[in-house]
């Protein structure tokens, strides 16, 4: 047979580098700056009291003045989020594997998992404080119950969407259920799992803050609560800003992880 000329038919890469990055980010940056300027102007023009709505400049001042406290609180909260997130992902994956591999157990577990998902988990925070005290444990517990579900669900969806004829191929060479699970279903589920992991990263931030609200002596959630009782609204906003930065950081960390784990997965562009 004549050799087929191998033609590179990979899709054209999107334009990369700084110019492309700035042009895609520029609208968002401009809008943000305009909002900050309008906010500052509105607070000054209408002389709004700083404990109702602090001006951006005042938030920045508070951020600098209280930097040591805030930095320490950020580290504590970041540690809780990271630890809680990792536990959630591991438990979420383990649960999905058990549900898929052991049919009977799966049929017992899955409805309960869905049922549990409908419990308002924020309401569990006081109970976790009661059980586990004021330390790290109740925060991890709360993050876990909030964040494991999207991981389990997305991995299950990924594992169950394997093409039937691929399974037929595997069966035709006598593949065992375990082989099909680890050589086909698990890798096939990774793109979907990574999507669930990104959701879990965001939920982990919420879990940590709620955990700290319910009872803590440190962390950004504690700072927010403490500052609001002192009517130090500028500090509340400064802490909120750092919570948002943490959220974004964890989200993008999950996205980088996704690119490393599933470089072959189809991507959609944000542009």
């Amino acid at each position: 047979m004549s050799k087929q000329p191998v033609v590179d038919i990979s899709p054209p890469q999107p334009a990369s580098g700084w110019s492309a990055a700035t042009s895609s980010w520029l609208p968002a940056v401009i809008l943000l700056l305009v909002t900050i300027v309008l906010w500052e102007a509105a607070v000054r023009i209408f002389s709004i009291s700083s404990f109702i709505v602090p001006a951006p400049s005042e938030i920045a001042r508070s951020l600098v003045a209280q930097w040591d406290t805030l930095a320490q609180a950020t580290m504590i909260t970041a540690g809780e989020i990271l630890f809680g997130f990792l536990v959630s992902v591991m438990v979420g994956i383990a649960l999905a594997l058990v549900i898929v591999r052991f049919d009977w157990l799966g049929r017992a577990l899955y409805p309960l998992v869905v049922l549990f998902q409908n419990v308002p988990k924020v309401a569990l925070a006081p109970i976790f404080i009661l059980w586990f005290g004021y330390g790290l444990a109740p925060k991890i517990g709360l993050i876990l119950v909030i964040a494991f579900f999207p991981v389990t669900l997305s991995m299950l969806a990924g594992m169950q969407s394997v093409d039937r004829s691929l399974l037929a191929l595997m069966n035709s060479v006598g593949a065992s259920p375990t082989q099909i699970l680890f050589r086909i279903r698990v890798p096939h589920s990774l793109p979907s799992l990574m999507a669930g992991t990104k959701i879990a990263a965001t939920l982990s931030v919420i879990g940590a803050i709620v955990g700290e609200f319910a009872g803590a002596s440190d962390g950004l959630g504690y700072v927010i609560q403490f500052a609001s009782t002192q009517l130090d609204t500028a500090l509340v906003f400064a802490a909120l800003l750092l919570v948002s930065v943490l959220g974004i950081a964890f989200y993008y960390a999950a996205e980088i992880l996704e690119r490393l784990v599933v470089p072959w997965a189809p991507k959609f562009s944000h542009a």
Partner: peptide, 10 residues
Amino acid sequence: VFQDANLLPW
């Protein structure tokens, strides 16, 4: 061999 090649994308 089926209609869909069913290759593993990874």
